[in-house]
Amino acid sequence: MITLKKKILSLVLSFIASVGMGFSHQTNAAGFNTLDQIKKNGKIRIGVFSDKPPFGYVDSNGKNQGYDVYLAKRLGKDLFGDENKVEFVLVEAASRSEFLLSDKVDIILANFTKTPERAEKVDFAKPYMKVSLGIVSPDNAKITSIDQLKGKKLIVNKGTTAEIYFTKNYPDIKLLKYDQNTETFNALLDGRGAALAHDNTLVFAWATQNKGFTVGINSIGDHDMIAPAVAKGNTTLLNWINDEITKLDKERFFHADYEATLKPIYGDKVDPESVVIEGDTH
């Protein structure tokens, strides 16, 4: 009887211990990994989109692909000599800051537009892409000015610059909000709203792939920059990324990135210089 009791007790303890293991990954006091710690860990955790082709998506073989991913792999290669040392963490738009704040990733490379509000929570490195907002709508009910949206539903992705811009500047336009890009664009396909507002680079790519839809408004709001982001105060990592981007600019890396990931979608319809930032634009 006593042995049975002991057995049960030890089982309980080992279970509690194994559950406790889950808690053991405690963030350090600062709440992030410095460059040295990342090197010691032997891997870097980069947050990318999984549902935003051609910037960050997962192909039919389950591999991460896209403009952002191309850069992420290069960072991994330059840091460890092996692009497979990158651990891709799939994020959704609304929780991108949250992933950095709660130390679930080291870098966010998920088409993250630099805004003053976000810059209060996270640190942005040098930009690698230009962006502003675009609005895509069906051909047969094309939206070419924001006035046409009054009293209609506009589809946005939660936590994106599009949501913030329209809530701030056009509070009387009814927004239909979704968590993920997949849901957002499918809602437009299903006719749940009159139009969809998102990064113009994205809506443009999407419109070339989906017949019956055109980008009626090319560019509204501010011209913004897209940049890698790290946790606030993680200067060692930030400086390293900045040095990397300066170096990559010199070898025209981002033009190569454009050719490899965006050109197949955009074709000749888009001027690469309107998307890519390189060299003297810094």
Binding site: K52, P54, S60, V89, L90, S95, T182, F185, Q209
Partner: peptide
Amino acid sequence: GVVELLKVGQQIIETASLL
């Protein structure tokens, strides 16, 4: 954000809409 059945499904839908 766990990549499980539904998430994989959504990724497939997304790549498909690209095609």
